[in-house]
Design a binder for these strands. Structure first.
Lengths: 133, 133
DNA sequence: CGTAGTGTATTATATTAGTAATACACTAAT
DNA sequence: ATTAGTGTATTACTAATATAATACACTACG
């Protein structure tokens, strides 16, 4: 009955961003973008911990946060089941909500720096080419 | 001989962003955008500290970082003098360097969320209208 | 049943970042 | 020299993060 899942995590312990938050963010993105689908069972705390050489309790902390956000569901004795559906409301509102705070920060910073909106968009084009091209 | 300066700082102690970094970022932006000009003397550590109800050492730490980045100059017994000129190289490269890391983060997040480049730009337009319009 | 697999509560330790309180050294102006 | 104004070195405290070692409760499966 196990629907195991191949999850791709990129953990960078020296990035300054706490490991548990890296897990939370990446799992959330993958759920919202349908790479992880409802009903799938997440890899176990211990397997993630050993794969990335981190402590099981750190993974557990991340899973716990994901449960609080109604993205995972704890199934006793089984594991964590993916609970939340992808963002199918047509307007992508849920996915957009994830990046809006960061967008606001950049827009304010650009304004204070007297960087024009067009310049900002040009930079995004360049970065998109490099990172998503 | 004091060329004091009216600096506008917006400090939010409960934002999660360390206070000293808020100071560093805002002063840097104001210098690069010519709101603060070379030769001006920054308000003293103690005056900033009392105005925002924070510790003088927190302000000092920020000023110290700004000195390391060649934006301020320490003048013993006087205060911190603004050292760096605005970014006048025509290409805005210095100002752009300040926001490029944040742009990269957003672009990667949008990619993982399967948000299109056009959607991202639309969000920027909206946010620009609200925050810089 | 027993075994192996889930997540987790508990307690403890170590490290780091951020903030705070005090005392000090320096300069400017009188 | 004295006073009042600079910044800062030192030390300490707090909180967040990560790790670690146990022990526990539950489920799946033979």
């Amino acid at each position: 009955m196990k629907e195991n899942v191949n999850i791709t995590l990129i953990i960078n312990p020296g990035s300054g961003v706490p490991i548990y938050r890296q897990i939370v963010e990446q799992v959330t993105r993958q759920v919202l973008s349908s790479r992880l689908k409802e009903g799938m069972i997440m890899p176990s705390v211990r397997s993630v911990a050993s794969e990335f050489q981190i402590n099981p309790m750190t993974v557990s902390k991340a899973y716990n946060l994901l449960e609080e956000r109604n993205i995972l569901e704890r199934v006793r004795g089984v594991g964590m089941r993916i609970l939340k559906k992808e963002d199918n409301r047509g307007d992508n509102s849920e996915k957009l909500n994830m990046i809006r705070p960061s967008i606001k920060e950049i827009v304010i910073a650009a304004g204070q720096l007297k960087i024009s909106k067009q310049e900002l968009k040009n930079e995004i084009d360049k970065s998109w080419e490099i990172n998503n091209g």
